[in-house]
Design a protein around this nucleic acid. Sequence first.
DNA 1: ATAATTCCTCTAGTCGCTAGAGGTTCAAGA
DNA 2: TCTTGAACCTCTAGCGACTAGAGGAATTAT
Lengths: 139, 139
Amino acid sequence: MYSIGQLSKRTGVKVPTIRYYEDVGLVTAAGRTSGNQRRYGQPELEQLGFIKHARDLGFSIDAISSLIDLQSHPDRTCQDATDIARVQLADVRDKIRQLVALETELQRLADGCDGDGIAGECYVLAALGDHQLCDADHD
Amino acid sequence: MYSIGQLSKRTGVKVPTIRYYEDVGLVTAAGRTSGNQRRYGQPELEQLGFIKHARDLGFSIDAISSLIDLQSHPDRTCQDATDIARVQLADVRDKIRQLVALETELQRLADGCDGDGIAGECYVLAALGDHQLCDADHD
DNA sequence: ATAATTCCTCTAGTCGCTAGAGGTTCAAGA
DNA sequence: TCTTGAACCTCTAGCGACTAGAGGAATTAT
């Protein structure tokens, strides 16, 4: 049996976060000692590991809920889980695409000025004020 | 003179967001008609464009505040503005690095299962439950 | 003049936590 | 057994950057 602190150390999920997950119903309420402290077993450890991994991959709490539902209905087809992963993948690719565009512009921004000038003629400020100066391939 | 709605259309910043920016002091409070409606001129349009552009680039409200301070003190050196941009650039690169790692794993996740199986033996669910199955180059 | 649209303020909600106050329980050493 | 100190408990409030909705007033177009 693990206390919430031990569970936290083993999974890397912070204590208040575990309690938060219980609050929002992502994990089922843990058993308690006579003194009202939470106690966890192996299954809870594994489930929290699953959640941690999914959160690290950027899945929303909602998406993770769906995945957990799937786990507890193993007779349902795998399609749903794959769909959730694909949506997530598309999302990540979109973010990458956007960030790379931003990287390019920020690079030009940071390079355009050697930092020696005065703010009145600063390229960074000018570029931010005038979208024309950038490649305009971001939003 | 523009109403808040016209300003919104021209800048692409939503009406409630403009009011929010005024609330938190990012833009100075607009002038009002006798009927208490906000009215804007060209300088406000340009400043909001600046803010929009900076937000699109991922600058925080705080960072933008600093940049605006710099604009209004054009005698200060450009160094500060460049620093802000560089920090932002480092941040973006870090995010890209992380996302690319995630992309790789999600790709494998989405590919591992053709969606025809049942959830009980779904690769997505298994992979999320067992970090061993992934390249472990993310968090 | 009237009707439709836009505007106003205000409060509360979103997401995924995080921080802090004030109090209780547990585990280990003396 | 007692004591100490760490870990636990609940509860409320806060973060960033908005977004939504209620209820009402002003503006604009017909």
